[in-house]
Computed example of a mutant assay.
Amino acid sequence: MTALDAVMRRQSHSKVTADAPSRLQLLPLVEAAATVADHSGLKPWRLIELRGDARLRLGAAFSEALGAHGKDAEKMASKPLRASLLIAVVFVHKPSFKVPAWEQEAVASGVAHMLSLLLDEAGWGVFWRSGNFTRSEPVHRMHELAPNEQLLGWLYVGGLPDKTKSDKRKRLEIGRYLSELS
């Protein structure tokens, strides 16, 4: 399979099974994802594996961020339990006169996207979740982020369910998105 085939086949899987890659299976994929273009080689990112009780603590942080109580708190607390492995994607701003913060954040996003492609190609179901909680103080604290770090979201990773969407993605009218200057 070519890289083009893998990219065109990729789809998000919002429902996954309890299976998940081990840390040893994850390491070569992270190493490959780290090859994205990175001006000055700053490596302005890091990833955090959340398994087991770490997902429960994240759910509690979601509830705290929402100020939820009762059933709402339970609902929020269950969200990180949708996959056995969550990979937090963290943008780490590095001081640089050459590389602005937005470019460094783009590198971190590139690593996350590349990792999602590699996980998909390896046969895992992946879904990138983000939202307002990524910038909330309880979630920031739960991930033990430094002042120069921002959470970009989580890759929810698990096994593919027996029935996966076989519908092909609607093709883009690419001419609307690719222009040419002469």
Results as ranks from 00 to 15, higher is better:
residue 23 R to G: 13
residue 122 A to L: 00
residue 60 A to N: 10
residue 140 H to P: 00
residue 74 E to G: 13
residue 69 H to K: 13
residue 18 A to D: 15
residue 28 P to A: 10
residue 116 S to L: 06
residue 66 L to Y: 05
residue 170 K to M: 09
residue 8 M to V: 02
residue 134 T to G: 01
residue 54 A to L: 06
residue 174 I to Y: 08
residue 75 K to S: 09
residue 64 E to A: 15
residue 42 L to H: 09
residue 31 E to C: 04
residue 105 E to P: 00
residue 8 M to K: 13
residue 50 L to P: 10
residue 70 G to I: 08
residue 174 I to N: 00
residue 164 T to L: 02
residue 14 S to E: 11
residue 135 R to K: 07
residue 161 P to R: 06
residue 41 G to P: 09
residue 53 D to K: 08
residue 65 A to G: 15
residue 39 H to G: 06
residue 130 S to A: 04
residue 4 L to Q: 15
residue 182 S to R: 12
residue 143 H to V: 02
residue 158 G to R: 09
residue 102 W to V: 04
residue 39 H to I: 04
residue 161 P to L: 12
residue 82 R to M: 08
residue 7 V to I: 15
residue 63 S to L: 04
residue 107 V to M: 04
residue 118 L to T: 01
residue 151 L to P: 01
residue 144 E to Y: 00
residue 7 V to F: 13
residue 94 K to E: 15
residue 22 S to M: 11
residue 155 L to N: 06
residue 128 W to V: 03
residue 171 R to F: 00
residue 28 P to T: 12
residue 126 V to D: 02
residue 168 K to G: 06
residue 114 M to T: 09
residue 49 E to M: 14
residue 128 W to M: 02
residue 180 E to K: 10
residue 113 H to Y: 10
residue 88 A to R: 04
residue 127 F to N: 08
residue 105 E to V: 03
residue 63 S to P: 03
residue 89 V to I: 15
residue 2 T to H: 07
residue 171 R to C: 00
residue 91 F to R: 00
residue 162 D to H: 07
residue 55 R to I: 15
residue 129 R to V: 11
residue 45 W to P: 08
residue 50 L to E: 07
residue 180 E to N: 04
residue 81 L to F: 04
residue 89 V to F: 05
residue 126 V to T: 14
residue 117 L to Q: 07
residue 67 G to I: 07
residue 25 Q to A: 15
residue 36 V to N: 13
residue 126 V to I: 07
residue 121 E to H: 10
residue 61 A to I: 06
residue 46 R to H: 15
residue 129 R to Y: 02
residue 123 G to H: 03
residue 121 E to Y: 00
residue 142 M to T: 07
residue 95 P to N: 03
residue 119 L to E: 00
residue 38 D to K: 10
residue 141 R to G: 00
residue 14 S to D: 11
residue 156 Y to K: 01
residue 47 L to C: 10
residue 59 G to Y: 11
residue 113 H to R: 03
residue 16 V to H: 07
residue 121 E to T: 09
residue 25 Q to D: 15
residue 60 A to Y: 02
residue 117 L to M: 14
residue 97 F to H: 07
residue 53 D to R: 08
residue 35 T to Y: 03
residue 156 Y to C: 05
residue 127 F to E: 02
residue 61 A to G: 04
residue 149 E to N: 04
residue 176 R to D: 14
residue 173 E to H: 14
residue 2 T to C: 03
residue 73 A to C: 11
residue 76 M to C: 10
residue 145 L to S: 06
residue 87 I to P: 08
residue 55 R to Y: 11
residue 103 E to D: 11
residue 130 S to F: 00
residue 143 H to N: 11
residue 154 W to Q: 09
residue 108 A to P: 02
residue 40 S to V: 14
residue 51 R to I: 11
residue 47 L to Q: 11
residue 152 L to P: 07
residue 82 R to P: 09
residue 43 K to F: 03
residue 40 S to C: 14
residue 76 M to G: 09
residue 164 T to A: 06
